[in-house]
Design a protein around this nucleic acid. Sequence first.
DNA 1: GAAGGTGTTCTCTTTTCGTTCTCGTTCGTG
DNA 2: CACGAACGAGAACGAAAAGAGAACACCTTC
Lengths: 197, 197
Amino acid sequence: MKLTRRQQQIYDYLREHAGEFAHPPTYDELCAHLGLSSRGSLHKHIQALVEAGVVEPMEGRAGIRLSEWGREEGIPHLGAIAAGRPIEALPQPEFLPVPDYLLSDRPCYVLTVKGDSMVDAGIMDGDLVVIEERDTARNGEIVVALINDEEATLKRLLNNDDGSVTLIPENATMQRMVYPAAAVRIQGVLVSLLRRY
Amino acid sequence: MKLTRRQQQIYDYLREHAGEFAHPPTYDELCAHLGLSSRGSLHKHIQALVEAGVVEPMEGRAGIRLSEWGREEGIPHLGAIAAGRPIEALPQPEFLPVPDYLLSDRPCYVLTVKGDSMVDAGIMDGDLVVIEERDTARNGEIVVALINDEEATLKRLLNNDDGSVTLIPENATMQRMVYPAAAVRIQGVLVSLLRRY
DNA sequence: GAAGGTGTTCTCTTTTCGTTCTCGTTCGTG
DNA sequence: CACGAACGAGAACGAAAAGAGAACACCTTC
C-alpha cells in the first residue's frame, strides 16, 4: 500500500480533521480545503486511497461523500484494571495496533494496569496487558477475575481441590485470597504485555 | 564496500534525520538540506549507497523518493543480551513488526533479555526489549552498555560527578558496578518492552 | 419534470522527479 | 606534470504524478 506524497498528504488531512466535519465532507469541500479546483483531480487521489484500503467510499447512493477510516483496526483498549475496583472503562474504547505474535487466536482486549499487585511477575503500574477473552483458565495462569460481580483484579489463578479458588497477587507484601468458586468469574487470561518507557 | 567521505556523510544524514521526513524525501529536498544544487550530483551518491546495499531505492516507479532502510518490514531482532556476555547475535536478524507507539523516532532494534538482572524493574528473562540506537543517555535511563568492548548488559545508568559511570542492576541480590567512563560505551536506550506469556 | 448538488469518467496540460549526460574544479599520487 | 578519483553544476529527457476542466450519471428536492 504505497501512497504518493500527495495521497499521503490528503490522507493525513482526512485523519487530522476527521472530527471537524460534522458529516463526511464533500469533494468540493475537500477541494477547497486542499487548494484544488477540480473535483476530478481529487477523485483520482481518493480512488487511490480506496484501493490502498485506507479509506472507504460512502456507498450510500445519495448526494455522496467519502467516508474516512471506519476501520477499527487493532485491539480495543477498554480501560484500566486496579486491584479491588471494577474495571475503569474508557468512555470510548481506543483501538491499539498490536502485532500478531502478541495475540492469541481468540478475541482479545487491552487493559492498563493500575497498582503494584503483580510487580513480582514483572507487571508494573501503567503497563498495558493484552487479555484473551475467556471464562475459564488453567492453574497458574494470570487472569482478570471478577469477584462478587464487583471488583476486578489481575491475579494468578489457583483452582483448589475443594472447589474453591485462590487468587495470588505476585507481590510479597500482599496476601493471597481464597474464594468459593461461585464468587469468582474469569473474564480473561493474560496473553502478553506492552510497556512504554 | 566502503563509502567515500561524502557518501558516508550523506548516509549519516539519512539515518540521523530518518524521523524528520514524514515520508521519504525527494532528491530536491535532500539537496536543499545537504547544500547541493544539483540533483544529478546527489544521484551519483545515492547510486553508490544503493550499490553498497545500505539504502534501498523506492521501487515505486513513479515520481518517487528514495527510501532508507525500511521500517516497513519491522524492527530488526538482533539477538539476546545477557549480563556479562557479549550480545548473542542471531545468525540473521529477524524483523518483528512493532507498533509505532512502542518506538521512538530514531532507529531501533529489538533484543531478547536473558537473565534476571533487571527483574525489579519489571524486565524478566525472555522479554523482548526495544532499544533506540544511541550513544549517549541521561541519568536514570536503562541502557545497553558495552563494557570494555566485551560484555554487553542491560542496566540502569548513572553518570557520576567524577566522570565515572555506575551501572545499576535492578535486582536486590546484585551489586551495582562503577566503571571509568572510558570503559563503558552506550549502545542504546530502552524504549519499550514486549512480553509473551 | 426541472434544477441543483454530487460522485464519476474522460481528455488534456502542467509540474515534479529520477535519471542520464556533459563539463569544470579540486585533490592526491606517481 | 599527467592522470584519475571524488565532487559538484547544469542541461536535457522521459515517465509518473498532479491538476484543470468538461461532460455525464445519479440522487434529492422543489
